[in-house]
Nucleic acid binder design. Structure first.
Length: 425
DNA sequence: TCTGGGGTCCTAGGACCC
DNA sequence: TCTGGGGTCCTAGGACCC
């Protein structure tokens, strides 16, 4: 008998993860149409009951309220989801050290060879992982077992929720025939359209193309998918528990569009402060900044710049934004969102100091921000912020109050006096 | 009439993911 | 009814160098 398992890769995928966490926290929600995303204004997760009523991912909450008024719409609770997520990884790691934390609700596990260690076949190991997750976390996971990541991902999608699917050598092609091309991991709408034109409608159609045609028509990512559909193991697992980040971003959509330069700038300022706070939490410095404004029509204007020195201080970034804001802002336009992405990140201890005077100034700022972070940790985000972020933060607090009185009442956050650390632009 | 040929590094932007 | 937020990777093309 040929070796059916050159590799044994498990894909584990939380079913409606955010909603499942909410139900685990509050069992009364079980069996009800529940949507998470009240704070973002769109559905980012929904229960099967809500799906059955026609709620889809990305649907605006206003719309959901209209078409299915009985739906329970909750704000996100990232802290809880992260805790459940960590417990999920911890459980999976009991079965193998080779675990890739792919996203908050998904992971890959390479259990190759573990049948000898655990004295049971791969299928039983995968089943046991699923059962342990269910019994210890109270959450459903769909599990797929196959010989590489692409096929394991296809497997876990086959039956949901609480599915368990094995794709081993002999039945690869059967499964590919019932997998549409647009549902393949790594094939988006653009590529799916291109493949349709070539007569490729299923994963099986793609896998059946001769290599010469694949190399002529497609670039590396799709060639690799093609190889994996043949059963080859191409995509390695990234098993670092804390992968190095290459960027940190923060964006926020306003409640209503605005042409007010002060308001738009202050929204940007608040995002920059938020991104810098994340930066300090990760003990990183940024060297490059990219900001954008997004208009009502979803057009973007970008401004990118390199910082004179690596920093975690929002003021260093805002000084440049303030000088150059006119390059991206137009009074004629209405804006709906701003955002910032920090890149060229390096660990904080490799900071090189420029001039002696500069070093001293930065030391002072470090002390200030150490205390800002402590206060934020104690009293919640935005306890202290730059005066330039004031309008946006005031606006956000007002929106929070009016959108959910209940939330507001339960919000016992103490607001301290504002500390002005910069100019009001 | 014809304007080398590489290599490397960087960046903008597209595509995709959850 | 009206469209979120946070990421990664790849490619093409320009700049620069020998």
């Amino acid at each position: 008998m040929p070796n059916c398992w050159p590799r044994a890769i498990v894909h584990i995928d939380g079913d409606c993860f955010f909603v499942a966490c909410e139900v685990a926290k509050n069992p009364k929600l079980k069996g009800q149409p529940v949507v998470v995303g009240a704070d973002r204004g769109i559905a980012c997760a929904m229960s099967y009951e809500a799906k059955a009523l026609g709620v889809t991912r990305g649907m605006p909450v206003g719309w959901i309220r209209k078409i299915c008024p009985n739906t329970i719409i909750l704000p996100e609770d990232p802290t809880s989801y992260t805790l459940y997520s960590r417990r999920m990884y911890e459980i999976v790691r009991r079965y193998t050290p080779e675990v890739e934390e792919y996203s908050i609700d998904e992971c890959f596990a390479d259990i190759t060879g573990m049948h000898r260690v655990l004295h049971k076949p791969y299928i039983e190991i995968a089943r046991e992982i699923q059962q342990t997750l269910k019994s210890e976390l109270g959450l459903d996971f769909s599990v797929g077992l196959s010989v590489n990541k692409v096929l394991a991902k296809i497997a876990s999608k086959k039956q949901k929720p609480n599915g368990f699917t094995v794709i081993d050598w002999p039945n690869i092609s059967d499964h590919l025939q019932t997998t549409t091309i647009q549902s393949l991991w790594g094939i988006g709408s653009q590529t799916a359209r291109q493949m349709f034109k070539l007569g490729i409608k299923t994963a099986y159609d793609l896998a059946s193309k001769p290599p010469a045609e694949i190399f002529k028509s497609f670039t590396k990512p799709h060639q690799e998918i093609w190889h994996e559909l043949q059963g080859k193991f191409i995509f390695l697992l990234n098993t670092k528990s804390q992968p190095n980040k290459s960027s940190i971003s923060k964006t926020k959509t306003f409640g209503a569009t605005s042409s007010d330069q002060h308001f738009v700038y202050s929204a940007l300022s608040a995002n920059i402060e938020g991104a810098c706070s994340k930066l300090r939490k990760s003990k990183l410095l940024t060297g490059k900044v990219s900001i954008f404004l997004k208009t009502q029509q979803f057009e973007y204007s970008h401004l990118d710049f390199v910082l004179p020195w690596p920093t975690t201080n929002p003021k260093d970034i805002l000084d440049i934004c303030h000088q150059r804001f006119a390059e991206v802002f137009s009074k004629e336009k209405k804006y709906r969102a701003t955002g910032v992405t920090l890149s060229d990140l390096k660990p904080i201890n490799t900071e090189t100091l420029n001039l002696f005077g500069e070093a001293i100034r930065k030391e002072n700022n470090k002390i200030i921000y150490r205390h800002v972070d402590l206060l934020d940790h104690r009293f919640g985000a935005n306890t202290i912020f730059l005066a330039s972020s004031l309008s946006a933060i005031k606006y956000q607090k007002m929106k929070d109050k009016t959108s959910s009185l209940k939330n507001f009442l339960s919000n016992k956050k103490r607001h301290l006096g504002l500390l002005s650390l910069g100019r009001v632009n």
